[in-house]
């Protein structure tokens, strides 16, 4: 039983030209911020198009059937779980990747009660168990080039849906992926309402300009390289919207940039704030790389990280960008610093 009509890129290859996204722009696109999916209203139908972050071409096309929503799905990423929770659909999650990464207590209980299956890594999910679980579709992040079992799963009638929320460069674009869940699960109105609400909150908070801009650095060492969010990334947008001056705001790209530690030392000389260390205490930071002590911001600056909120951060931050923004604003301004949602001071 196939619930959705998914046309993969390969199938579309012959009629790619006529079906390109530009032509469909004449129809109404319901998406405002997200770059990698579109919801097109056409002839009384809603068509969901997932776009490839690399080529911007349509990767999957789904004609939404409001009368036949998905009733049981597998969610491989924490972000998916957060969005399902916002839509009050935790009971429709039939499989997850690993309970170690779950924050939601209801879902955790379902895993413990064996009502929800654990699938493991995206690249190596056990096909037979997934079939047995009765899930109609699987949401995955598309880290690899191709979803390994896509063909097999499609044959058995399990739809494989890629979620590029993690590639979005705007926090609201990332949050907007809740619409994908809303439409597929038969809750479009709820999804729109949730998104409009958080959008409003985000835009209200957004700092348009401040006189004194806090200088910020973000990221940490990975091996011999420092991984910093690139200038057009989700993190960089948040820092900008919180009224801070991110050191690498001018770098290109929506992902991350790799920098040598020497450069970091030099560039972070007058930086006050350091975000997203990925490590909760200074002691652990020193253990992970003793040379971090040579950064002046390590000694004299303020360091904030999300790692203590753990799975909650990964599950909720995407769908609550206004709370992340609020954290940033509080961190940079020093006001209401005791009421952070996700972040904590690294000591």
């Amino acid at each position: 039983m196939k619930h959705l009509i998914i046309l993969s890129l390969l199938l579309l290859f012959s009629c790619q030209e006529s079906n390109s996204s530009s032509e469909l722009n004449s129809n109404k696109n319901l998406v405002q911020y997200a770059d990698f999916f579109q919801l097109i209203q056409q002839d009384g139908q809603t068509i969901l198009q997932i776009l490839s972050p690399e080529t911007k071409k349509i990767e999957q096309t789904i004609v939404i059937n409001p009368k036949d929503p998905l009733l049981k799905v597998a969610c491989l990423s924490a972000t998916h779980v957060g969005m399902m929770q916002k839509l009050n659909l935790i009971d429709r999650i039939g499989a997850v990747s690993n309970s170690l990464y779950i924050y939601n207590s209801e879902l955790l209980k379902n895993v413990q009660d064996k009502k929800v299956l654990e699938l493991g890594e995206e690249m190596q999910i056990p096909v037979e168990s997934l079939v047995k679980s009765g899930c109609q579709a699987i949401f995955y992040s598309g880290f690899g080039k191709e979803f390994q079992h896509a063909k097999t799963l499609n044959k058995i009638g399990i739809d494989c849906l890629v979620n590029y929320d993690w590639r979005e460069s705007h926090p609201l674009g990332k949050a907007e992926w809740i619409l994908v869940f809303g439409y597929l699960m038969g809750k479009p109105a709820e999804a729109h309402a949730i998104f409009e609400d958080l959008k409003e909150k985000y835009l209200d908070l957004q700092v348009v300009s401040t006189n004194r801009k806090a200088k910020v650095i973000s990221g940490n060492m990975w091996g011999d390289q420092w991984n910093a969010p690139a200038g057009e990334s989700y993190q960089a947008t948040l820092m900008k919207d919180a009224g801070a001056e991110y050191v690498y705001r001018k770098t290109k790209g929506t992902g991350s940039v790799q920098l040598s530690f020497e450069k970091i030392i030099a560039d972070s000389k007058n930086v006050e704030f350091w975000l997203n260390t990925g490590i909760p205490t200074k002691k652990m930071m020193v253990a992970s790389n003793p040379k971090l002590q040579n950064m002046s911001v390590f000694k004299t600056g303020k360091i904030y990280d999300y790692s203590r909120s753990g799975n909650r951060f990964w599950e909720m931050s995407a769908i609550e960008p206004h709370k992340v923004l609020e954290d940033y604003i509080r961190i940079f301004s020093g006001k209401n610093i005791e009421k952070l949602h996700f972040y904590h001071l690294v000591e």
């Binding site: 690993n98 890594e121 880290f143 990975w222 091996g223 011999d224 530690f261 790389n289 040379k291």
Partner: peptide, 19 residues
């Protein structure tokens, strides 16, 4: 193991003179 740890281990196994 999960992706991040795996990357960390892979990085270690590639050697570094900078630690």
């Amino acid at each position: 193991s999960e992706a991040n740890s795996l990357k960390l281990f892979t990085l270690w196994s590639m050697g570094s003179l900078q630690n």
